[in-house]
Amino acid sequence: MSGSAHATAAARHGGNPVLRIIGWISQICGIVAALMIVASVLIVCQMIFIRFVLNQSTIWHTEGVTYLMIGATMIGLPYVQFVRGHVNVDLLPIMLPNKARRVLAGIVMALTLAVVGAMLWHGYHFWHEAWDWGETSNTPWNPKLWVPYLALPLGFGLYALQLAADLFAMSTGIDKPFGLEDV
C-alpha cells in the first residue's frame, strides 16, 4: 500500500450484508494466517532447542514450518486485499480524472480476477491430484500432501471472493476506485 493519505484502510461494505460477510471471512483468514505464522515461529524455537540443547535430530520441523508459511501466505491473501495491503503504484490513478480512474480500476480488477482464477483452477487440480493419488512427501515425516496443497485452492478462492466483492463495491459506488476520493 502506498504511503499516500488517499488510500482507504479497508474494503467498504456500505451496509451490504454480503460484502460484510465476505469482509468478515477475509478478516478470519487474516487471523488464521497470523496464527500459522506464530505456530511456525514456535516450531522453529522448539527445533532449535531440540537440535542445539538436546543434541537430537528433528524429523518434521523444517517441512512443517515450510507448509505453514506457504499456507499462511495463501490463506492471508484475502485479508491483505481486504485491508488494501498490496503494493500500489498510484501515480497514474492519482493523475487520471474520475471516469478514467474507474475504467482503469475495473480493468485492473478484471485482469487480477482472471489471473487469480487461473491460479485457483490449477491449484485445485494440483490439490485434487494429490488427494486422488494419496501422494505423500519423500521425507521421514511423510505427510499426506493434499493437506498443505489445500491452501492453494482455498487461498486463491477466498482471494477471488474478496476481489469480486471489491469489484462489486466499486461498480456500485460503495467504494472508490483505488481507494482514492473523487477530484
Rank of each mutant, 00 (worst) to 15 (best):
H6W: 11
A7S: 12
A9E: 14
A11W: 02
H13D: 14
N16M: 05
N16P: 03
R20H: 13
I21W: 15
I21T: 15
G23R: 02
W24E: 13
S26M: 04
S26P: 05
Q27H: 10
A33I: 01
V38Q: 05
M47L: 06
M47P: 00
F49H: 12
V53L: 11
N55L: 12
T58G: 00
W60P: 04
T62P: 03
E63F: 12
V65S: 07
V65A: 10
Y67S: 05
G71Y: 10
G71C: 10
I75V: 13
G76H: 04
G76E: 03
G76Q: 05
Y79Q: 04
Y79H: 11
Q81S: 09
G85R: 00
V87S: 11
V89W: 13
D90E: 06
L96Y: 03
P97W: 12
R101E: 02
R102E: 13
G106A: 05
I107P: 04
M109F: 15
A110I: 02
L111T: 00
T112C: 07
V115F: 11
G117N: 03
G123F: 02
H125R: 06
H128P: 03
W131M: 07
G134L: 06
E135R: 15
S137G: 10
P140T: 01
W141M: 11
W141C: 07
L145G: 02
P148Q: 08
P148F: 10
Y149F: 14
L152A: 09
L152T: 00
L154H: 02
F156Y: 11
L158P: 05
L158S: 01
Y159D: 03
Y159N: 07
L161Q: 07
Q162M: 07
F168M: 04
A169R: 03
M170I: 14
S171Y: 02
S171H: 01
I174T: 08
F178E: 01
F178C: 07
G179Y: 08
G179W: 03
G179Q: 04
E181G: 10
